[in-house]
């Protein structure tokens, strides 16, 4: 990986040198890199697992796990043209508590001013049904994704929120009152079923100015509380636990809008 990065850097340097020597107009050429940074929040504060928060419904939640898959990124220029990031470069699992999982860096982005980012929460159906040999990195079912994959009903878990809550029923096995939302479902292989793949589309007033030799970072906020409040109010008391079921589509419709762009930096 390191070697690859060095190679990219060298390539970028060469392109940068070439680009500056033949620049004729204001349209930038070459490629740059963009990092999408995922900053998990609880309402207006930074999320910390093990901390008690009051939900927008007035319930108490102490999150213990908050993981989600993002993939299929598209970067949108201010003129509306799009750059579709090659899929296999952007399957990414964000794990609260694992700092390195907060950043997805996309290399070789064509230079330009990007004001929009689109992606899906989850893993597309093609990858959900791909051969095992094509499920590496964050998609490794016996590695990084081993707790984000349903082995009994083949498919990735797109979103996993678990926590302690006095509004949830006491679980004698766990010895505590636990809530859990494990959301997945890509539409089914041989029979149609629920599809919880959710599309996110965000825009920013500040452009990511992608240039050769420069690096832009798009800082996203992901607010855990979004799952509880809109478009449908979901209380832990009424819905303490969901996995592969119809109601999970209501949950995913809520968390689909948990993201916002906090800021964009250009270095």
């Amino acid at each position: 990986m390191k070697k690859y990065n060095l190679y990219i850097l060298a390539l970028v340097a060469i392109i940068a040198t070439t680009a500056s020597s033949c620049k004729k107009n204001s349209t930038p050429d070459g490629t740059g890199s963009v990092t999408v940074h995922f900053d998990n929040r609880y309402a207006s504060t930074d999320l910390a697992l093990g901390t008690a928060y009051t939900t927008s419904n007035g319930e108490t939640l102490t999150p213990t796990t908050f993981n989600y898959f993002v993939s299929n990124f598209v970067l949108v220029k201010s003129d509306g043209t799009k750059y579709t990031v090659p899929k296999d470069q952007c399957y990414h699992l964000v794990r609260e508590g694992v700092d390195s999982s907060a950043d997805l860096t996309i290399q070789n982005v064509p230079a330009g001013d990007y004001t929009g980012v689109q992606f899906i929460i989850g893993v597309d159906s093609a990858k959900n049904t791909a051969p095992v040999s094509e499920r590496t990195g964050d998609l490794d079912v016996a590695g990084a994704a081993s707790d984000m994959y349903w082995t009994w009903n083949s498919g990735y878990i797109f979103y996993k929120l678990e926590g302690m809550s006095p509004q949830a029923p006491y679980d004698s096995m766990m010895g505590m009152a636990m809530m859990y939302y494990h959301v997945g479902g890509y539409g089914g292989m041989s029979s149609a079923t629920i599809n919880n793949i959710r599309t996110v589309s965000l825009t920013s007033g500040t452009a990511a100015q992608v240039r050769s030799g420069h690096h832009s970072t798009v800082y996203l906020y992901a607010d855990v509380d979004a799952v509880f409040n809109a478009p449908v109010q979901i209380t832990i008391a009424a819905n303490p636990g969901h996995m592969f079921d119809q109601y999970s589509t209501t949950i995913s419709a809520n968390y689909a809008d948990m993201f916002s762009i906090n800021r964009v930096t250009n270095d």
Binding site: V132, V141, T151, W152, N153, S154
Partner: peptide
């Protein structure tokens, strides 16, 4: 597909089910 309910659609993905169960 595999198992009584056909939940797994690839022989390669069969072993993780009993291993994790």
């Amino acid at each position: 597909d595999f198992f009584w309910d056909g939940g797994v659609h690839d022989l390669d993905l069969v072993p993780p089910n009993p291993i994790k169960n």
